[in-house]
Design a protein around this nucleic acid. Structure first.
Lengths: 227, 227
DNA sequence: ACGACTTCTCGTACTTAGTACGAGAATAGG
DNA sequence: CCTATTCTCGTACTAAGTACGAGAAGTCGT
């Protein structure tokens, strides 16, 4: 679809029946459902019910479900906010990453919805703009800066997913046990000696914050031109 | 579902009607469809047609579609192969990343299917095992090595997606033009000054291989303990 | 060779989700 | 109040996953 009608809520026409809802309301409802029950729970019927409308009324506001998803994404991306750059680009970039992590944790569905989508909503653009501002003191050219930003973003997203898995694994003990049993069996075939050792090591539970911090440091350190 | 029945094709029972197909055949057909027409084209009906079977026959071999997807993933993950470690862990890790990139390019749907899935098929385990072997000379402990591997993997996957977008954008010139026109308008609002400058810069087309190499270097450099 | 048992095949049908269509309702301007 | 316009939403179609169960195609014990 063309980006203009996607991102610019059309000016309310003076004629005709006034709309009973708005993109904002629909987006908020969809986000709430996704937060509470996951992305699969976000169906057009469900969102409609949530705001007390008929299903087809939604289509007055969004062309299709895909559009709604992009609105949802841009909406929550905005929650990351932007702190004024301090001049220390590493520290600022780290702050950006931390903010992203907070958002990704608040909206567990985001990491799942993000890949394979090209969202250029206002909040997404603002984040990108902010990253460029933050990276200005680093001396990177625009292309390098964008690559760096994308690198950090994809790291944070995949790491938050990883964190969640660690946690969820502990939650459903049965499933975990089955996994472990299977892994042990697979591993005892002798084909995966190092994995076997890893499974036997006590799972010294590291502080997630510390792990994230350390990895993030490494990612950011890797960015500096010339190693 | 329990991992054992997922990954161990049950031994052919001597009794009863002999199966007309196999997991391997079904997986291969599904991968072929996905390669040619994308993941959405992979429906149970389509795969069944492809191997000349009725839809419901598939369910003798895979519990559900999700299972089929995991089989597909593990199948293509295996294509990355494993070269014997040389002792230079940076070089070896780089080779792993390059192999992953090849696979991700050959199967464009993979990057899309991968996230949010916990696949522990034999090939996936073999890749993990190989990564641990490769990283042994680095002195990282197992946990750090796994993190490093996951970091590299997620970088490669997201970068390949990025590369494809760059290419596809050029393909559908109309859509691209619409995007640019919209971006310019959004940007001319004055809210995104740095983005505006980025759009104005001539798009000096860098060699994708060079860009990938450079970024990969940075990621790997970032891994060394102690910056 | 036959009957019992087992396993695979696949037509039918149910369910859920996205969404096209079009009749009716609500509003502003003439 | 009439008309043009815009929004509402019931109805219905389509696509996709998959439960069910009858029938087909084997093996084995007798």
């Amino acid at each position: 679809m063309d980006p203009e009608t996607l991102w610019n809520e059309p000016a309310r026409p003076r004629l005709g029946r006034p709309p009973a809802h708005s993109r904002a309301e629909i987006t908020a409802a969809a986000v709430a459902v996704a937060d509470a029950e996951g992305l699969p729970a976000v169906t057009m019927r469900r969102v409609a019910t949530e705001i007390g409308a008929g299903v087809m009324s939604l289509y007055t506001y969004v062309r299709d479900k895909e559009t709604l998803l992009e609105l949802m994404i841009d909406h929550v991306v905005g929650e990351a906010g932007t702190a004024p750059p301090t001049g220390d680009w590493r520290a600022d970039l780290r702050a950006v990453a931390l903010a992203q992590r907070v958002v990704l944790r608040r909206h567990p569905w985001l990491a799942e919805a993000l890949p394979q989508r090209r969202t250029f909503g206002p909040h997404t653009l603002a984040q990108l703009e902010h990253a460029l501002a933050v990276l200005e003191p680093s001396g990177m050219d625009v292309r390098a800066a964008m690559e760096a930003f994308s690198l950090v973003t994809s790291f944070v997203s995949s790491h938050v997913t990883y964190e969640r898995r660690q946690r969820d694994a502990g939650a459903s003990a049965d499933e975990l046990r089955a996994q472990v049993r299977y892994l042990r069996k697979a591993v005892e075939s002798g084909r995966y000696p190092r994995l076997a050792r890893a499974l036997d090591e006590p799972d010294g539970d590291h502080d997630p914050e510390a792990v994230f911090d350390r990895l993030l440091d490494r990612v950011i350190n890797g960015l500096a031109p010339g190693g």
